[in-house]
Design a protein around this nucleic acid. Structure first.
Lengths: 264, 264
DNA sequence: CGTGCTGTTGAGGACGATCAATGACGGTGG
DNA sequence: CCACCGTCATTGATCGTCCTCAACAGCACG
């Protein structure tokens, strides 16, 4: 039984891809297209990368309670937006994949941070540079706004499923959602890049019960049994079990045609 | 035992206030200030009201699955954004109060709609008019974006509390949140404008259990026992029981200073 | 070769759902 | 004016899901 491999590799080189901007442009382009927006001049934004780097698994990318005048783009690896609750447990709000910004919105809650779940590589932008880029290209502003809307829809949907469904359906739904979101940025694997512990913290279930649920899904031949990782075998059935629809992830249709730009 | 009275009265007249724009300006101004934005020329937007009206309790304001080129502003009464689930149950995503837009975001999900919980009065705007107003006053665009952000934070927080806390804490937290949101737009009552059924559908609990929970809170002298409505007596203790913090509702602090405007 | 993280298994118990039934209240129509 | 109906609030009983506590094995890492 082997654990999952690195997911979301942008280039074939080990270290950080030397031509940063290339990876940034490609990632953002894919991401924004998945939101139904074509942003013409991503080069300007990409060339504004201030600082990047790698960070080890389990380390904090954004520490809870810190403010910053930068926004961080995830290039490789998997991270999560989480809140540390009073009793010490970690509630995972969202998984972050390559092309996602870790901290696009100003964080109002001291207990919320972003943590790397695997080794990650990052790119940072000054807010002022993003503003300039939006001013030059309103489509970028629209794209960022839509990504905020999408977050809203995803969170909303989770409320319904977390509070109403059985553990089995909750887990199945969460897994389907992650598959769909990974595909939206071109990552088509069947192995999900996080552990059962992460899954439990995201689904609001105990690790023990998630484990039993995963085993049940394996017995149903929905998840792979040859692998200790979470590998989806029968996606159709997983969607059925989780009552997964996916409408709520379909940004392109029925979109407001509003366009925004930034006045610096 | 009496039920709750109408909440959110904008004027003293029974019917729709004749000078529509006045109520609209006052409501939006309060709302936007609560988001930390001062929008200079609300008159332009307010004068663009296309259509308004009253709607009876339990009626749909926005029917599920319909698209529209208008956005609807709630002037009086209480409504809810909800999703009809496969098993027929209603999941309430959010309560809407005077000053909230019912349908600012384009709805990607056919099963989602907005329903009046009490008698409501409304004002409608063409999207094109809103766009024009934003173009003329970028602060308006910023305000609307921030209201989207706030939704994100509210939904996020609910995920944590719905999945982790006991029924008692869930209910208490939800009630605290509603008190805080009502206050943010200047409605300072202690009686909440919805029923135990609504509360159950929002908290993801059965009506029966919500009822027992409410009674428990009454025995603790946290809720009022003289009234069949949900009336808060001891707010401090309610916040303690619900682990309610409220940081996540504090928009003004630590905000991105980004400003947006619309290019029509 | 320990240490920490992950995955796994067992047993007991609490919380909340479900089913079923009743009373109060307001509105509606005969 | 009264009978009827729908919504809301309330109570009792049973049952299932999932949490908690506790322990252990495999694996990667230093």
């Amino acid at each position: 039984m082997q654990r999952f491999n690195a997911v979301g590799s942008v280039g074939q080189n080990d270290g950080i891809a030397s031509p940063y901007p290339v990876a940034v442009i490609s990632l953002l382009d894919r991401k924004f297209r998945s939101l139904g927006v074509e942003v013409p001049d991503l080069g300007q934004l990409a060339s504004a990368v201030r600082h990047g780097g790698r960070i080890a698994a389990h380390a904090d990318i954004i520490r809870a309670g810190e403010t910053s005048k930068r926004s961080t783009l995830l290039l490789e690896g998997t991270a999560c937006l989480y809140k540390r609750l009073e009793n010490g447990t970690r509630q995972i709000y969202a998984f972050k994949y390559p092309g996602d910004f870790c901290d696009l919105l100003p964080e109002p809650d001291d207990a919320v941070g972003v943590q790397a779940l695997s080794e990650c590589s990052l790119a940072a932008f000054d807010h002022s540079d993003i503003e300039r880029a939006i001013a030059a290209s309103p489509a970028l502003g629209l794209a960022l706004w839509r990504s905020t809307m999408l977050d809203t829809f995803v969170f909303r949907e989770r409320i319904a499923h977390v509070s109403r469904l059985t553990a089995m359906a909750r887990v199945a739904h969460l897994l389907c959602e992650q598959l769909a979101r990974l595909e939206a940025v071109g990552l088509n694997g069947t192995v999900l890049p996080f552990t059962q512990v992460d899954l439990a913290d995201a689904a609001g279930l105990s690790v023990v019960h998630v484990n039993r649920t995963v085993q049940a899904l394996r017995r149903l031949n929905v998840l792979s049994s040859v692998n200790s990782a979470i590998e989806i075998v029968d996606r159709k059935q997983l969607a059925a079990i989780g009552h997964f629809d996916g409408h709520y992830l379909n940004m392109p249709r029925r979109l407001s045609h509003w366009t925004i730009s930034v006045a610096p």
